[in-house]
């Protein structure tokens, strides 16, 4: 048990260190701009007032280390400064959108994880059958599709031709839960189609990998059914890689929402980020990048820790 705790602690420390370095990169890459950062950012659109506001926002009057520390502690306390474009509090801009983004990602995850696991187990069970081949070809194709292609096909069928779902997912805070589910159905479905393929292939590979081991052969010789072998003997041992790939895909989901949000005009963080990049609203870009990166890193960290925690050899040392 000590060994596990030690490994988990190591991973956690490494994750925090990564997070710290990433925050350094995100903060200081702006300082790479030559000359006056603010004039460089604002370019053609500069007036003395906007330049002054920009300097205040980027805290250019402070030395670099104080600037960084005040930025970092600001973010930790939820105060991220003001937007350059409209002078509003960034935390206010981001607040609700962050919730929306997480809602969408969570919805997509709830849809996709069971589907991927069932498909993966089925494909492993009926290996090399027509079912397996079809699922394989379909998933390989859906990995290759650009997200916006999937999204627009869904819009074409479900919104335009059948009229089942709205093509634009405009949600607001006062919507009921089911109404919200209804409006975000298409973007979640898009995200689901994108991540299911990867998860399913990994599940299948993990199980098939195990089927070569001696204890499976033993189970076979005992005369157990294939279903029993896979569910009772292979699946528990394949849990570690499967959990790993599920969490990694969740991390991907949080980032992958960007395109889906833009297609469906969903008021989430991704859309804000894209708009701010186009407007070169650096403080907002930095803050949203930091949030995305932190989520991504934390989820990957969770994947690492879970992989250690579900490893039978580490859990039950001799």
């Amino acid at each position: 048990m000590d060994k596990i705790l030690k490994m988990v602690a190591q991973r956690l420390a490494l994750g925090l260190l990564t997070l710290f370095v990433v925050s350094l990169i995100i903060f200081f890459s702006v300082q790479l701009l030559p000359g006056d950062v603010c004039q460089e950012i604002l370019g053609q659109a500069q007036t003395p007032e906007t330049v002054a506001a920009c300097r205040r926002e980027l805290r250019l009057n402070l030395p670099w280390y104080e600037r960084y520390i005040s930025w970092l502690f600001g973010i930790l306390q939820g105060d991220m400064g003001r937007s350059l474009a409209n002078q509003r509090e960034i935390s206010e801009l981001i607040g609700k959108r962050l919730g929306n983004t997480f809602f969408l990602a969570a919805f997509a995850a709830v849809l996709s994880v069971p589907v991927a696991l069932v498909l993966g187990v089925m494909a492993a069970l009926y290996r090399n059958s027509p079912f397996d081949r079809i699922v394989n070809a379909l998933t390989l194709s859906s990995i290759s599709f650009p997200e916006f292609f999937v999204a627009y096909i869904l819009i074409l069928f479900f919104a335009v031709q059948l009229g089942w779902f709205p093509s634009i997912s405009n949600v607001s805070a006062d919507l009921g839960f089911w109404e919200r589910i209804y409006r975000t159905a298409l973007p979640s479905l898009t995200l689901m189609l994108v991540v299911v393929a990867h998860m399913m292939r990994m599940t299948r590979a993990a199980i098939i990998n195990l089927l070569a081991s001696p204890y499976i052969e033993m189970a076979n010789l005992k005369g157990l059914t294939r279903m029993h072998i896979i569910v009772h003997h292979a699946l528990p041992n394949a849990l570690a890689p499967i959990i790993n790939v599920v969490v990694i895909n969740l991390a991907y989901l949080v980032v992958g929402v960007v395109i889906a949000e833009v297609v469906f005009v969903y008021p989430g963080l991704g859309q804000l980020l894209v708009d701010s990049v186009a407007k070169r609203d650096i403080p907002v870009v930095q803050a949203s990048c930091m949030i995305f990166a932190a989520t991504y890193i934390l989820l990957n960290l969770t994947a690492d820790v879970l992989a250690i925690a579900t490893n039978p050899r580490l859990m039950h040392p001799r």
Binding site: T18, S29, P34, G43, L273
Partner: peptide, 24 residues
Amino acid sequence: VDVLMAIPSLIFALLLLSIFTNYS
């Protein structure tokens, strides 16, 4: 490379694009 890979690439690309557009 570890650090670069820790940041999701789409997000990182957006950050870099927003900073270095018009960079000379």
